[in-house]
Amino acid sequence: MLNLFVAAARSRREMETVCQNHDLQFSHYNVLRILRGVHPDGHARCDIIERMIDPSPDVTRLMDKLVERDLVSRSRSEEDRRMMIHTITPKGLDLLERMHPDVQDVQNWFDERVSDRDLRHLSRICEGIYGNDE
């Protein structure tokens, strides 16, 4: 397990460096990635938390920062006026597009260290670890 933690931390640091170079925290990138996946629709805060790699203790503040930077917009749900829906803005999509080459470099860095066969095996192992939590 220690090897898994060390490898995960090393990989995460690579992604955090990319995020810092684009004036983001890793958690911000994670939220933008989640919202891009449902674009042009959005998600409520609780749905974002459910999908985050590392759910932040204060997702509301995190979302506020993304809204302040015009990377995410917030609107009331049509179905439930008490619920706020967050969507990625064109500026947020543009930022992810600009980040893509750097993110791809991290993916390539990872791929250089692990063969395709081992990547498939590693993916299957990881899915076995986190896939049975439901």
Rank of each mutant, 00 (worst) to 15 (best):
L32R: 00
D64Y: 14
W109S: 10
D118S: 13
R69N: 12
R81D: 14
R61H: 06
E97S: 05
H100M: 04
H100F: 14
S56C: 11
V103E: 03
D47Y: 12
M84I: 05
D54M: 15
G92W: 00
V106A: 07
I88N: 00
R76H: 13
L32M: 04
H39I: 06
E97K: 05
Q20A: 08
A44E: 13
H86P: 04
R45Q: 03
D41W: 14
R45K: 04
Q20G: 11
E112Q: 03
D47W: 08
L96W: 01
D102G: 07
H100R: 09
D47F: 13
E78N: 01
W109I: 15
M15L: 13
R36N: 10
V72Y: 01
R51P: 04
E97R: 13
L66Q: 00
V106H: 11
H22C: 10
R36D: 12
T89E: 08
H22T: 10
E78F: 01
D102A: 12
R76A: 15
L24I: 07
L71D: 01
G42C: 07
D64R: 14
G37H: 00
T60H: 10
Q20D: 14
R69L: 07
V67F: 08
V72H: 00
R81A: 13
V67M: 05
E68S: 15
P55M: 04
L96R: 13
E78C: 08
S115G: 15
L35V: 03
I88G: 01
E68T: 10
E14D: 13
P90K: 03
R33L: 07
V59I: 10
D102S: 12
E79P: 01
F26A: 06
P55G: 01
N108Q: 11
P101D: 02
M99C: 10
S115L: 15
E50K: 14
V31N: 00
H43K: 15
R113Q: 08
R74C: 12
D54I: 09
R61D: 14
D64S: 12
R45C: 10
T87V: 02
C19W: 02
L35P: 02
K65Y: 09
H43L: 13
L66G: 05
S77T: 05
D80P: 03
D94M: 14
P55K: 07
H43Q: 12
P57Q: 10
Q107Y: 14
G37P: 02
L66K: 00
V31Q: 00
I34V: 06
V59C: 04
V59Q: 08
L62R: 02
F26S: 11
T17P: 11
E14S: 07
S56P: 08
E16M: 14
E50N: 12
W109A: 06
H86R: 09
P55R: 05
P90E: 09
V106G: 03
L24R: 02
L96D: 06
I34C: 02
K91Q: 06
N30H: 09
Q25E: 09
H28K: 06
